[in-house]
C-alpha cells in the first residue's frame, strides 16, 4: 500500500497547485506551481524523496505516453497547421540550432573562465 500513500501525497501537491492557480491571476499552468511547491517541500526536508520516489519516477517514465493524446489532437487543427507550416519548420530547425549555439557557447565561456580563476 505504500504506492497508494505516495499517490495521495502527489495528488495533494497537485490539488494545492490547482488552488494556487485559482487565486493567482497569471497565465502559468498549475503544473509549474506544483513543480516549485514539490521542490520546496523536498528541499526544506518536509517531504523525503523516498515518500514520493516510486510513484514519481513511474509518472516521469510515463510522461511521453501521457502526451500522445495532445499530439494526436493535431487532427483537429489540420487547417491551421497548413497556414503556419513555414514558420513552424524555420523555428524547428534554425531556431533549435541558434538556441543550442547560444546556450552552449555562453555557458562554456563562463565555466572556463571560472576554471581559470580557480587555477590561479
Amino acid at each position: 500500500m505504500r504506492y497508494l500513500l505516495q499517490a495521495v501525497i502527489i495528488a495533494a501537491v497537485t490539488f494545492a497547485a490547482e488552488i494556487i492557480k485559482y487565486f493567482v491571476p497569471l497565465p502559468v499552468p498549475a503544473s509549474i506551481y506544483g513543480l516549485l511547491l514539490l521542490f520546496a517541500l523536498l528541499k526544506s526536508g518536509i517531504l523525503k524523496l523516498e515518500q514520493i520516489e516510486d510513484v514519481g519516477n513511474l509518472l516521469l517514465e510515463l510522461m511521453p505516453l501521457l502526451l500522445v493524446p495532445a499530439s494526436v489532437s493535431v487532427l483537429t487543427a489540420l487547417d491551421t497547421i497548413q497556414r503556419m507550416l513555414l514558420p513552424v519548420l524555420v523555428m524547428g530547425f534554425l531556431g533549435t540550432i541558434a538556441v543550442m549555439a547560444v546556450t552552449g557557447l555562453l555557458s562554456q565561456w563562463m565555466i572556463r573562465r571560472k576554471g581559470e580563476k580557480s587555477h590561479e
Binding site: I10, L35, L49, L59
Partner: peptide
C-alpha cells in the same frame, strides 16, 4: 492519459532536486 499529465509534470521537481 492527459489527466495524469499535471502530476507527472510536477514530478519534474524530482530530477531538479
Amino acid at each position: 492519459l492527459e489527466y495524469l499529465l499535471t502530476p507527472a509534470t510536477i514530478c519534474l521537481a524530482i530530477p531538479l532536486y
